[in-house]
Design a protein around this nucleic acid. Structure first.
Lengths: 111, 111
DNA sequence: TCAATACTGAAGTATTCACTTGACAATTAA
DNA sequence: TTAATTGTCAAGTGAATACTTCAGTATTGA
């Protein structure tokens, strides 16, 4: 409601999307530059269909942006999902920094 | 292998843990201060057993730290999970900042 | 001692999830 | 036109997940 971007990203979806190893692998691959669906599928040992399903999830939460030109869908890193993620961390930072300051508890946790 | 803390936190588990709305609610509640298991369960409309199951997941990935004294298990925010999360974002920041710089693509995404 | 409190453990269930197969559509190349 | 490439759609499967209930175990208070 306050962002420049038109997409509303739910943090739940972002977390869920990144909870899957295959989807994180896709994000990692796209971090190095754009790629087609089949190019993404190649090193993953899963079908192109499965990759397309992952891409839909990644796109819905703003982690990936795709565009189809001709018969090729080109995928690249999105920004909204990452922004939402950083925002969530910022919103919670104070509580765990506060906890970090409490030395006894911290050492306790180290065991 | 390089952290001061003794816990190795898998980012997969952190993302998976935070992908659930109930677990995020628990984290939110604990951000305001420590609480017992039953105190956490009260506003959630689920059984104490379910909360205990969530707590185990949250503890395994370092988002929550718990300690049982007498018959009461006291839960508080952990730090390792949040650190792992921030680390993951830092590791990926360059790629999406690079993307943000590309104005045409960015505007394209707003659409 | 007796009962209430606070949690734990095992087992079951309904739903979600990551994947597959197989059939199809659209674009590009020969 | 024909054939290969690239992706999409629908439906199904097995495993994981978020719960539940029921039966227990400690701990605390009266």
């Amino acid at each position: 409601m306050s962002e420049g971007a038109g997409k509303e990203v739910s943090i739940k979806r972002v977390f869920h999307a990144l909870g899957d190893a295959t989807r994180r692998a896709i994000v990692d691959r796209l971090s190095e530059g754009p790629a087609s669906v089949s190019r993404l599928a190649a090193p993953l040992n899963i079908t192109v269909t499965a990759v397309a399903q992952h891409l839909q999830i990644l796109e819905e939460c703003g982690l990936v942006h795709t565009e189809k030109v001709g018969r090729v869908r080109t995928c690249r890193i999105g920004t909204a999902g990452f922004a939402a993620l950083q925002q969530w961390i910022n919103d919670h930072r104070s509580s765990w920094e506060r906890r970090l300051d409490r030395l006894e508890d911290f050492l306790d946790e180290e065991e």
